[in-house]
């Protein structure tokens, strides 16, 4: 595959998404539908995963903490740092690249192979604006889901730490408050917003420009998941270097 050509057509797609806008009255209901589907519909899985990963991080830290000189509150500190810096923004986004991304690719891809996109174009609708713009706007609400993920993850860590008998609640809370750097929160949400844009657009790209039939829709979803995750991982590295390095 010609990567440069793909990056080129991806960029042109993104520009096209913001041209020739759809009537606001219609766009508004599309955006609400996408918020419901993409963000609200993902809360369940996000909460579930966050809770357990937070708990596991706390237990792992506790089990590796054999030196009695190190305070037990480190468990709270470690949970906070890993959940806020990496787990919620990055790990959850990779899960969303699978869940939301494959939904986006397969729904747009199905519209492509059943000529529904042609039907929009024939009517004179800017199909990229109609299909992709509401997804991008809906994903602006994705940071709220990540905020919930952070909260639930830390709560999971607290529950596992305290009820697993590894440390007291007071120690955990003291750990949470140790060396708090407000910019870390900003860093996490800057990452989240960029990943949100990636999760909305790369799967749309793979769905919109796919060729073939139902079988290819499945293949396109897989390819789109791989690329969305790869891009998230690489951007995570670059953003971390830029913002914290």
């Amino acid at each position: 595959m010609n990567y440069l050509a793909s990056i080129g057509s991806y960029s042109m797609m993104v520009v096209e998404v913001f041209r020739k806008p759809t009537k606001w009255r219609i766009m508004k209901s599309l955006i609400l539908k996408e918020i419901d589907e993409l963000v609200y519909g993902s809360l369940g899985i996000i909460i579930f995963i966050s809770f357990f990963i937070g708990a596991v991080v706390a237990i792992q830290t506790a089990l590796n903490l054999t030196n009695p000189i190190i305070p037990r509150s480190l468990i709270g500190f470690a949970t906070r740092q890993s959940v806020i810096l990496e787990f919620a923004p990055t790990f959850v986004s990779i899960i969303m690249a699978g869940k939301v991304g494959s939904y986006i690719t397969s729904s747009i891809g199905t519209m492509r192979v059943t000529e529904q996109i042609d039907a929009l174009e024939v009517m004179g609708v800017n199909s990229l604006n109609y299909l992709v713009f509401p997804k991008i706007i809906a994903m602006l609400f994705y940071p709220f889901a990540i905020a919930i993920s952070m909260y639930v993850g830390i709560f999971g860590g607290w529950l596992a730490g305290v009820f697993g008998g590894f440390l007291t609640s007071a120690d955990f809370v003291a750990g949470l408050q140790t060396d708090f750097v407000p910019f870390h929160i900003a860093y996490a949400f800057i990452k989240t917003l960029i990943f949100a844009f990636i999760i909305a657009t790369i799967p749309s790209f793979h769905g919109f420009y796919m060729k073939g039939g139902a079988l290819e829709v499945g293949k396109a979803s897989t390819t789109s998941f791989v690329w969305t995750s790869v891009v998230i991982i690489i951007l995570n590295y670059i953003l971390t270097q830029l913002l914290l390095g």
Binding site: T110, M111, T114, E115, Q116, D118, A119
Partner: peptide, 8 residues
């Protein structure tokens, strides 16, 4: 369209 192409 051949397959009707209704918005499902």
């Amino acid at each position: 369209f051949q397959g009707s192409a209704l918005f499902d």
